[in-house]
């Protein structure tokens, strides 16, 4: 399992290729990539991502370990960036590998659902009108109930 909280960008293709060739008993690799989405009026200049160094890595590791144990994953990867990002840039990715696809898909969804509201990241949107913190959505909290 690898957890990386980093300011630098990452190469999705390289990460997935390296992740996919680690094991021979894996039949499925699922990946999800989060991208900085512009707002409806297209005025987003920057997305600033703040996090809690130390706790972030700890929380992500715990979430990934629970997913690995529950779906008997061969491996899991979480990369999440912090700092200033512009629309179109990749913010984060998760990858899961398992013998069969259902486990890999479900575990990736679980990782995403928990990462959204239990890993200490906060997003702030910068436009010409100023800076605004992104509010957490009730739907994100509700998403945890299905697990």
């Amino acid at each position: 399992m690898r957890i990386s909280v980093q300011a630098e960008s990452f190469d999705l293709g390289e990460e997935v290729a390296a992740f996919s060739k680690e094991y021979q008993d894996v039949g499925a690799v699922v990946t999800f990539t989060g991208i900085v989405r512009n707002n409806d009026s297209g005025t987003l200049k920057e997305m600033l991502i703040e996090h809690y160094p130390g706790m972030t890595e700890k929380a992500l590791t715990e979430i990934a370990e629970r997913a690995r144990d529950r779906w008997n994953l061969s491996d899991a990867l979480v990369i999440h960036r912090h700092g200033a990002l512009v629309p179109g840039e990749m913010i984060m990715m998760v990858a899961t590998s398992a013998r069969h696809r259902v486990a890999a898909f479900e575990a990736a969804e679980y990782l995403m659902d928990y990462l959204k509201s239990r890993a200490p990241f906060w997003k702030q949107e910068i436009t010409n009108d100023g800076a605004e913190w992104v509010a957490a959505k009730d739907a994100d909290e509700d998403a945890l109930k299905r697990w």
Binding site: H80, L115, K116, S117, R118, W122
Partner: peptide, 25 residues
């Protein structure tokens, strides 16, 4: 560095953090 509730004990605690609901992903 563990999420908890406002009634949590501070006995032996070294660090307390306050923040809004998280918005990762």
């Amino acid at each position: 560095q563990e999420l908890t509730d406002f009634d949590a004990s501070l006995d032996g605690v070294q660090e307390v953090a306050f923040f809004p609901p998280m918005t990762g992903g």
